[in-house]
Amino acid sequence: MIFKALVSACVALVILEIIFHRHASFPWESWPGFYALWGFVSLFAIVVVGKRLGRGLKRDEDYYDE
């Protein structure tokens, strides 16, 4: 349910953007859906990279207590 609400909110925002243009300072900002895509991809990438990082850096909780 929450997921569906989230998806519809996202769709609504993309439509809204077409109506209210953002004042673009950099050229890519005027591409439709740029921010949406950016947000999605960034978070995806952060989590995937973080997960990789975790494999190298995770230790038991009492690692330093020995």
Partner: peptide
């Protein structure tokens, strides 16, 4: 958009 699509990615 940025925030909610990020949330979507999380979901």
């Amino acid at each position: 958009q940025l925030l909610l699509f990020a949330a979507l990615a999380f979901a």
